[in-house]
Nucleic acid binder design. Structure first.
Length: 581
DNA sequence: TCTGGCTGCCC
DNA sequence: ATTCTGC
DNA sequence: GCAGAATGGGCAGCCAGA
């Protein structure tokens, strides 16, 4: 139900995406890619899973292959994950085809969705953990020397309603905490099978070296007003929010260091240089620890932070220190374990004190996130000033965290006690710009029957053409999507206008007349291999794209040809772009 | 051997 | 990543 | 407020086909 064959920290990807699935379906069911697109476009099917089911039902079979079993399907998934090398794509496709042909009832739909890792059944990990918790409250597994209890709502050992409720709440919290600290279903379920409950599950499943903890996440905050609501009356700290990659460093021993990503992927191979730096930076009395940090691209000569896009060009596999072109600096901001002792229940103030003692900064390699503490009387100007400083320092904004009250390390989204404050979250701030929708993509799932995303462009008066800047698929309410769909019913084009400068790679399902202006917001600019605006200005043969674009509103007061990049507002990167235009 | 498409994973 | 929606 | 499900830009790595 969680679409995984192994925990996140163990390598296993299927290497199967929509294209592979569509091709497999075409051959299996004798359909063309065009008719599949058609079923999705006309709302006959809400996703590829439904396409598969419709096709399967229409298929005439002479001989039915044996029924699928959970074991067989699981084995097939594992085989897909393992396949590699010459002709592996063909082998994968054939394996998928076999599964689809053997499917009965609604199975084809769910097999395809499993392969997409998008089950869309309203259940994901948190719900599954809740169900596990409830199941183990209601049913007590039998142990050596004691028989189990099949159902604690009746018979001997029956719980009263109130007792049952309390146990379920307690168990749910314990199971979720256990999974966050040790995100491995096999291990959590094994502990539950031993009869552990809300009171002692934690003794079996807790933060440990070599198993990545679900990192603590932050809630986006809409400006200083909300910060005040959440934090005034509490002592809190602000830290610069570096624009890099989350890094959870596990020092198992001084010679055995692993680094995990925000999503618990093992990134050790990617950062041999950072591992050396950590080793060098550790205090003598530290044997083992888990550190939370941000890995940031760093220019060693100029001693400045480089943008995220520079970091992302680093190789990922089998990296040798000599070959590294993009250097990194690790900015540590928290620690969850030290010398075998978990620290997650301590306050941030205490954890940070320990962190500062655990390692010494090495210029340009390892250091601590810049911070400023605020006392309980919130002074908005001070936070504002610190926010401005962070942006001047090439950061995205601030992380705001209580120091003592409610200041334990809470893995995952369980409690979003941390706040993140970015300029572009604040209404009226950040880069909002006006663009013209020139293409649209059919929506999937809940967006079937409308467009799910749009291709957006700006007008370049010099070349007299529309140049793309991004797609947008978020920021729309359901109502917006219906409005847009209806509006463009009478503004569709057979083919793109001659003055649409769009890369071949960008193929909308429907081309639109450049007849409406939208205000959108973005966090940043990036050098784009697919978008055509400001081509060559920042890099040869490359345009400029927008990072994290979202729809704000229709602008009825503006003409499409008034949408140039120059309308883009304050930020430094925008200004440099405007100047070079 | 080169190129482009696909996939997974960062944000 | 951001955003919206149902509960 | 949580959980789920829509959707974004862009990179390296892998594989197939030219």
């Amino acid at each position: 139900m969680v679409n995984k064959v192994a925990p996140d920290y163990e390598e296993s990807e299927l290497g199967v995406g929509d294209s592979t699935l569509v091709r497999a379906m075409c051959e299996t069911f004798g359909r063309s890619e065009a008719t599949i697109k058609q079923s999705l476009a006309n709302g006959e099917a809400k996703d590829l899973g439904e396409v598969a089911l419709l096709s399967r039902v229409a298929q005439k079979m002479l001989m039915m292959p044996p029924k699928l079993t959970i074991e067989k399907v699981f084995a097939d998934m594992k085989a897909l994950a393992t396949a590699s090398g010459k002709d592996s794509q063909k082998a994968k496709k054939e394996r998928i085809q076999k599964m689809m042909v053997a499917s009965r009832g609604a199975e084809a739909k769910y097999i395809v969705r499993m392969l997409q890792a998008k089950l869309r059944i309203g259940i994901q990990i948190p719900t599954l953990l809740q169900a596990l918790a409830y199941a183990f409250v209601l049913t007590v597994p039998s142990q050596k020397g004691s028989s189990g209890v099949p159902d604690r709502r009746r018979g001997q050992g029956k719980f009263s309603a109130g007792d049952l409720e309390a146990r379920m709440v307690s168990m749910e919290g314990a199971v979720k905490q256990a999974f966050c600290e040790q995100p491995n279903f096999d291990m959590v379920i094994a502990a539950l099978m031993q009869g552990r409950d809300g009171s002692n599950l934690h003794e079996a499943c807790h933060i440990s070296l070599g198993i990545p903890v679900k990192p603590m996440l932050a809630k986006p905050s809409k400006g200083l007003g909300e910060v005040g609501e959440r934090l005034s009356g509490k002592r809190f700290t602000g830290e610069w929010k570096y624009d890099g990659e989350r890094a959870q460093v596990h020092v198992i021993s001084r010679d055995k260091i692993f680094i995990y990503s925000r999503n618990s992927e093992n990134m050790t191979e990617k950062y041999p240089d950072a591992i050396e730096a950590v080793k060098e930076s550790l205090s003598e009395d530290v044997e083992s620890c888990i550190i939370d940090a941000e890995m940031v691209a760093w220019d060693q000569e100029k001693k400045v932070i480089l943008p995220f896009q520079a970091l992302s060009t680093r190789g990922r596999k089998n990296i040798k220190i000599e070959d590294i072109k993009v250097n990194v600096c690790l900015f540590a901001f928290d620690c969850m374990l030290c010398n075998g002792v978990p620290l997650v229940k301590e306050t941030l103030e205490a954890r940070r004190e320990k962190l500062w003692k655990m390692m010494k900064p090495i210029e340009g390699k390892v250091t601590f996130a810049v911070y400023r503490n605020f006392d309980d009387e919130l002074k908005e100007e001070e936070v504002q000033e610190f926010l401005d400083e962070s942006i001047a320092g090439s950061c995205e904004g601030l992380m705001l965290k209580t120091l003592t009250e409610n200041a334990t390390y809470e893995p995952s989204k369980r409690s979003l006690n941390w706040l993140k404050l970015k300029k572009d979250y604040i209404d009226g701030l950040g880069d909002s710009l006006d663009v013209v929708p020139i293409g649209a993509f059919y929506g999937k799932g809940r967006r079937t029957g409308a467009y799910g995303a749009f291709l957006l462009a700006v007008w370049d008066p010099e070349n007299e053409e529309y140049q793309t800047v991004c797609k947008a698929g978020t920021g729309f309410s359901d109502e917006d999507l219906v409005t847009h769909y209806k509006f463009f019913e009478s503004h569709k084009l057979e083919k793109p206008e001659a003055n649409y400068n769009v890369t071949d790679k960008m193929k909308p399902d429907v081309w639109l007349e450049a007849c409406q202006v939208w205000e959108i917001k973005a966090a940043d600019l990036s050098i784009s291999p697919v978008h055509t605006s400001a081509m060559g200005v920042k890099a040869d043969g490359k345009g400029i794209g927008l990072r994290f674009p979202r729809f704000l509103r229709i602008r009825d007061d503006k003409q499409p040809e008034a949408c140039g990049m120059l309308s883009c507002s304050q930020s430094a990167s925008c200004l440099s772009l405007a100047a070079s235009n």
